[in-house]
Structures are given as C-alpha cells and as structure tokens.
Design a protein around this nucleic acid. Structure first.
Length: 813
DNA sequence: TATAATGTATTGTAGACAGCATGTC
DNA sequence: CTACAATACATTATA
C-alpha cells in the first residue's frame, strides 16, 4: 500500500511520507489501515519493536484530527514523552499542534486544550482524569504505547484503569494499543473491542544466537566464528568482532556494578581501534560528563568515555544518561554496558546486542531469577538500525553446551509470556477505587464493580469473585482511614479523601503521613494544654482496623504509650513553661515520608543495621510515630531503611557534598536526585494534608520541604529562593555576611561581587532578581571581605577546580 | 625475603511515575 | 533453597 492510498489523511501527509522515503507501508501497517485504522476503528497492534509502530499511531491520530478530533498519546516513561513530541512535531507544517504533559513538564490546561496531539505518561493522564481536565472529553483518539505494560505490578493497573475510564467518558473513542509481540494480544483486543493486527514481521532482519566456545550459533542454523582465548572474555571478543565490522554493541548485564566494570574492560578493546579524531571528540565528551557532577560515578564514566565505551544505569544523573545515549546514536561511543533500563527507554539501536546475564537477583524469589522472555526480546529488539545496518544480531552468552540448549529453548524459540492484568492487587485498588469514587465515576459498591467490569482483569478472568472480595477489603480500609463515607448504599469521598486522590498519593502513604502528623499534633497538644481532652479527634468508636497488607494505623498502637509519655513531659514542662511546644523536626518529617509506600526504599547493607540502630535511639524522640521494637518487630528493619533514606535527605538538606552522599550511602548521583524529588513531592503532599486538617505543623512541613527543594540549611532558605541562587551561591553569600534578601538588596555591591567570586554577569542578574533598585555594576570593583577570602581559601584548598554553574542541582526541566 | 600468581571467603545485587508554583548556565 | 562477579584476603610458587 502506498501512502497516497491511505484514506482520510490530512492533505499533504502522503507526500510528506513519500518524501521521507516511505514508498509503501510495511505489511503490518498496511494491515492496520485495512482494518480501518484511519477510519476511526480501534486496533491492537502486536508487532516487534522498530517495525513501524509509531507510524501506525501517527496515521490514526492524523486521520482523527482530520475529522476534527483530538488525539492523546500515552507513553510509559517521561523520557519517551519528549522523544515522541519531537517526532510528531514534524507534522506542524500541516497545521497539527503537539503538546506534552508530564509530572515535570507542565503546561496549562487551556494550552493543552488547544493542541491536536497531546503526549503524556499514563500517570499524568490518570491524574488529569481525576482532576477533570476539560479537554479529556474532546478526545477522539487515544494511543497507548507499550500496552503490554499493563502486566507491570506497579504501574500496569494505572494504564488499565485509565484506558477504561477514557473509554467510559467517551464511548465512541478510538483506541489504538501498541504492544510488543505477545501471545495473548487477542485478549487485549477483546477488552478494547478492537481489531487485532498480530505480526512477527521486521523491517530489518534480526538474527538471534547464542555464543558458546568459539562461535555464535544463530537461530537459522548458521554460525559465526568468534574465537575466545584466555586473554579475552566472550563479551570482549564479541565487541571487538563487531567493531572490526564497523558496528557498535549494546551489552546488557544484570547489575549496576557489572555495567560499570564491564564498561571499563571494554574500554581496552575499543580504545586501540579508535582514530585520532574520535579520540579528540571523546575527550571533549568526557570533559562534559565530568562537569555534570563532581562525583566518583561521574569520573568513572568520563574515564570510560575517553576510551569509547560507557555504562548506563539508573544511578546516573539524567544529564549523564542523555549524553551517553546521544553519543551512542552518533556512533561516537562504540559500546554501552547497560542494565535493562536502556531496553525500556529511549531509542538506542545498535548493530549487535549482547545479553551477558540472563538472570537477575530477586529477593522475593530468593535467588537468581531468569528474566522474562518478553524482557529479553525487548533487549534483542534494540539490535539493528533500519537503513544503517544490513541486519541486527542479538547474542546470548553461554559457557557450556547445556546452557546453550537451555537458552535456545527458553528464549530464542520461546514465545513471550502472556500479559496478565495485575489490577486485583490491593495496593492498586486502594488508589484507583478512591480515585474512582472521588471523581464521581461511581458512588456505590455496585457502581464500582460495574466499572471494574470494564477492565482487562474482568475480561481475562471472567469471574469477579476475587475482585469483589478485594474491593470490600479496600473499601473497609478506606472507610477506616476516613477517606470515604458510607451511608446506606451510597459511598462518597470525604474532604480528605478528595485531597488524597487529587494529590495522586497512595492512600496508604496518606494514612501514614496523617497518622504521623497527628502524632506530632498530640505530642504538641499535651505540652500546650492541660485540660487533657480533645487530643484525640478520631472517632471514639473506631471500627476494628482492617489489616490491609499487615498495615495497622500507627495511632491505634500508640494509645497507652502516649499517655505515659504525657505524664513525663508534663512534669518537665511544669518546670519550664517558656519551652516552645514540640514541633516536628526535619529528620522526623523525612523519616515519615521515607516510610510511606510511595518512597522507594534504600537497601540496608551489612553493618548498616548496627549504625542505624544506634542513630535510631539517638533520634528516638524525633520520630513521628511509635518506633517498632528492635527485638520483636519485623517492622524494625523497614524503620531502619527508612531512617537511612531520611539521613540521606537530611544530609542533602545540610549541604553535604554530593560525592560524600554517594559514598556514604552507596548510591549514584541519579539516586540522590530521585530520592530528593520524591521527598519533595511527598512533603508537598504532606503540607497540603496538614493544611486540610488544620494541623499546626504545616509550617514545619513547608520548611522541611523547602530545605529539600533547595538542598540548604535553614539559614539559607531565604537566599536560596532567589532565582539563580542555588545551594552553593547561597552559602558563599552567607559566608560573606549577606544573610538575607534584604542584605542582598542593601549590601555594598562590591561585597556581593566578591562573594560571588567576581562573576559580574551573574551578580547583576542576581541583584536584578532580588529586586535591587539599581543592579548595574558599572564602575563597581570587587571588594574582598575577610570572610569571603577565608571562605575562598577553604574552597580552593579542597576543590581547586572551578565550577561556575553547578548549582542548578534540581528541577532541570 | 619480596613479589607475583593462584586459591578462597565475603559481599552485594534493576527500575523511577505523581502535586504545585515558577522559571536554569 | 537456588547465582555469580568483583573484591579482599590468604596461601603458595617463584626470582
């Protein structure tokens, strides 16, 4: 089928496609068009990676827009959102406008409403539906990229529920679901009332094989000699071999450390095959990488890059990641050793893919668990760049003949596992049922069940017994925590329930936070008031707590002990009436948010147990909630890892250097940013919850959040809020005696200039931002104050290098 | 005796979405 | 209960 033969496209689009070198559609694309893709027909396309899925989506969206509609493209990752947006922007000359909406790339509702295509993550769409974004009901076409992810335990249910809701809001909605090749795509099509296009066709040949001994054995029976001798391991030999053919390699390994060490080793293989130009370019890239952050990871990566190799995993700062990805696409880097992140992420095709490790440690499983077939196939799908390589090769490694047979059996010949809905899990239903009630989708148990009947789970099981059981458990939980109210048959969300849903919090996180804040409130209450009533504002006759996931509301367990402590503290406060009332400390708040299910836990290493147990007792009084017993409570372990996270955050908010933090907690720079971002978000939510409940701790929460946001101590909060002033500049100014915005406005300009190490432009901008009357520095000379000089010597002695702009630290979007 | 080569116990393990209010070198 | 690579440390071979 030629582009010109596709019905219902906007004028000019066919020419554009032809101009892009598309003479005729790929078979699966043609099949999709024949199935009515451009006529508004719903469709599930289950086809291999890189076989033109995006074009299928584009055809559907463009034709829908041509009919006067509006399209939504749902991506699984934020990074993909911007990638897709750029891709779609080539239609702008045909009058098609594109917008993005993700957590860190926000656009106003009106602006989005005016766009023809909107790209968003599934969570963002869910959130928009919850908050009744006006344009949602104008949608006529929705594309769900990588729908097989409904199988994902954590994030799958969101996609599932979101699609169900969108279909409910707009019954005529065209749904185009793009999936990797999975066996049961038909079930997904049933669920969505869609046509199915299933194909194994690829535009570029993919050969899968297993390397064993001195050769790769391919699935088509052919072999390729790649000798391995003592000095060269399998991976190195294969990388060298690809490079001699002029191709680059992607190596998948199972841990971050392996990725780093493998990259280091590959450097040797690659380096001796580089020419001088490449070396020079790599040198520049290495410098750029070094300047992203002055951590060890950053240095290690730069060292690798100098040799033309790199590692890639979630511990990297996002700037690192994109630098590496871009350089690999430009063929400057010859090898990337990566954890599976890369397979799911942005498009980084490569001539050859090596899957070194096919098993990964899994604590729940209790050992090394083989990767899913689907996951392996996704990695393999990165092999071969259409138009550039004659074919792609995916190679698994084995050490003996038996393993080789197993690998063929398990992965090369095998079909991927069927996709199964994970919706019936309690954590998923907790959050989605509350949202469904809160946004008015359903107001009774029956209504909820009816809605759930429109999900993939219902289609797949055909039996809603489990669903209704879990629904009841979850409803009890929500009611017990005052998120919903039941009156006869009607269910409605409480004030706080609405807030929780709007904030996109897991209700369990919200319950934990509320309990923690209430704990602080009661603590404070007993200092302030002597009447002794009213400090228990929960309903007196509270129903027996439902044990959801073993979670029992902390305030229930606390009862007696609070009374005990009360008497003690009261005795003390009698002595000193002027003592200000207790108020949550930052560490206490960090610990509180760190133990919610929304915060990804830090791993306790050996020796950490002792260290943190000690710290735990030191800070016992600061915790917002009852500390589990060290000896009898399994929850103590979790308490400690939350404490570790809390300490990390506390270090960050105390201006500890990034590399000190990475060293102390055994994390990468990317992890720090991630943790900080999550904490910032949760503290924001906590602030709103405290506000809604009119707790006195609101201010303390806000302050803790600000400190996390800017990464500074309390005394710098005022300064760090000024635009262009981050944690480093704020500290410099402070050391020079400029302690507040008012100081910044009034201090002699020369002093400010001195404190900012003579950067005239920066100083002017900052003075302007702080609202100084006359920010111009004309004729002003640098004044070296004593404190500034001392501070500078300090700085220069331990870090001689000059980092002018390393203070943006957060929120790079 | 210093050093290199080899054997053995120990250690640690992937990933990343969301609110809100405004704006990075 | 299951693995395995990297590392740290211990032992043995070698100049």
């Amino acid at each position: 089928m030629k582009p010109a033969e596709i019905p219902e496209l906007p004028p000019g689009v066919d020419d554009q496609l032809a101009g892009e070198g598309i003479e005729s559609l790929y078979p699966p694309q043609a099949e999709a068009v024949e199935a009515g893709l451009t006529k508004g027909e719903s469709l599930v396309a289950s086809v291999p990676t890189a076989s033109g899925k995006t074009l299928i989506a584009e055809l559907a969206m463009l034709s829908a827009i041509q009919r006067g509609g509006k399209a939504l493209y749902i991506v699984p990752l934020r990074a993909l959102a911007s990638e897709k947006k750029t891709e779609f922007e080539r239609w702008e000359e045909y009058g098609i406008s594109v917008g993005v909406s993700t957590g860190n790339y926000e656009s106003s509702e009106e602006w989005l409403a005016s766009r023809d295509i909107i790209v968003a993550t599934s969570e963002k769409v869910d959130s928009l539906v919850r908050n009744n974004a006006g344009w949602i009901d104008q949608l006529s076409c929705v594309v769900a990229d990588e729908v097989h992810l409904v199988d994902d335990r954590n994030r799958g249910p969101t996609l599932e529920v979101t699609l169900a809701k969108l279909r409910r809001i707009n019954p005529g909605l065209q749904v185009v679901a793009l999936s990797a090749t999975v066996g049961n795509a038909g079930e997904i099509a049933d669920w969505l009332d869609a046509e199915l296009v299933h194909s194994e066709w690829r535009p570029i040949d993919l050969r899968m094989g297993v390397h064993f001994g001195n050769a790769i054995n391919f699935d088509d029976g052919s072999q390729r000699e790649v000798p391995v001798d003592r000095s060269q391991r399998q991976t190195e030999a294969l990388v060298g071999d690809t490079l001699d053919e002029g191709g680059s390699t992607l190596v998948f390994v199972n841990s971050r450390r392996n990725a780093e060490s493998a990259a280091k080793r590959q450097g040797g293989v690659v380096e001796r095959r580089l020419d001088d130009d490449e070396k020079a370019e790599l040198q520049d890239l290495a410098e750029e990488i070094r300047s992203v952050s002055d951590t060890e990871t950053s240095d290690d990566l730069a060292d690798c890059v100098e040799n033309g190799s790199a590692f890639h995993h979630a511990g990297l700062a996002s700037e690192h990641r994109s630098l590496v990805e871009d350089a690999f696409r430009d063929r400057l880097l010859k090898v990337i050793c990566a954890t599976p992140t890369l397979a799911a992420g942005v498009n980084t095709p490569s001539r050859r893919v090596i899957i070194r490790d096919w098993r990964r440690y899994d604590g729940e499983f209790g050992g090394m668990k083989p990767l899913d077939v689907l996951e392996i196939h996704q990695m393999c799908g990165r092999a071969g760049r259409p138009g550039l390589d004659p074919y792609g090769e995916a190679v698994l490694l084995s050490k003996d003949a038996d393993t080789m047979d197993e690998l063929f059996e398990r992965y090369v010949w095998a079909d991927p596992e069927p996709v199964r809905s994970k919706l019936a899990a309690e954590p998923a239903l907790r959050t989605h049922l509350l949202a469904t009630i809160s946004s008015g989708f359903a107001n009774s148990r029956e209504g909820l069940l009816e809605f759930l009947d429109a999900t993939l789970y219902a289609t797949q099981t055909g039996d809603d017994g489990r669903l209704s059981t879990v629904t009841d458990t979850v409803l009890d939980y929500l009611e017990a925590n005052d998120f919903i109210e039941r009156e006869d048959e009607t269910i409605r969300a409480t004030n706080i329930g609405h807030t929780v849903s709007r904030l996109y919090l897991d209700p369990m996180s919200a319950a934990e936070i509320i309990d923690g804040l209430r704990y602080a409130e009661e603590d404070r209450g007993k200092d302030e008031q002597s009447t002794g009533e009213s400090h228990r504002e929960r309903p007196a006759a509270e129903p027996e707590k439902v044990e959801t996931d073993g979670f029992v509301s902390a305030s229930d367990l606390v009862g007696d002990e609070t009374e005990d402590e009360t008497t003690e503290t009261e005795a003390e406060s009698d002595v000193d009436e002027t003592q200000p009332p207790a108020r949550p400390t930052p560490l206490g708040l960090y610990h509180l948010v760190s133990r919610t299910p929304d915060m990804y836990e830090l791993y306790l290493k050996s020796g950490d147990r002792e260290t943190y147990t000690e710290i735990c007792y030191e800070h016992e009084a600061e915790f917002l909630g009852r500390m589990p017993s060290e000896y009898e409570d399994v929850a103590f372990e979790d308490w400690l890892s939350a404490l570790k996270t809390a300490k990390l955050l506390d270090d960050w908010a105390s201006e500890v250097d990034e590399d000190r933090i990475t060293e102390r907690y055994g994390v990468g720079p990317g992890d720090i940013r991630g943790k900080v971002e999550t904490a910032d978000w949760l503290l924001g939510a906590a602030e709103q919850l405290a506000g809604t409940l009119e707790f006195s701790s609101t201010i303390a929460v806000r302050e803790a959040k600000k400190r996390i946001e800017y990464g500074v101590r309390e005394e710098l909060l005022d300064l760090a809020g000024v635009r262009n002033v981050g944690r480093k500049r704020a500290r410099r100014l402070f050391e020079a005696g400029i302690e507040s915005r008012a100081d910044l406005r009034n201090t002699e300009k020369g002093v400010v200039l001195g404190a900012l190490r003579g950067r005239r432009k920066t100083t002017e901008t900052i003075l302007e931002n702080v609202g100084r009357e006359d920010p111009s520095l004309d004729g002003v000379d640098e004044v070296e104050t004593e404190t500034a000089a001392v501070a500078r010597e300090d700085r220069e002695s331990d870090s001689g290098d000059e980092h002018s702009g390393d203070q943006s630290s957060l929120g790079d979007f």
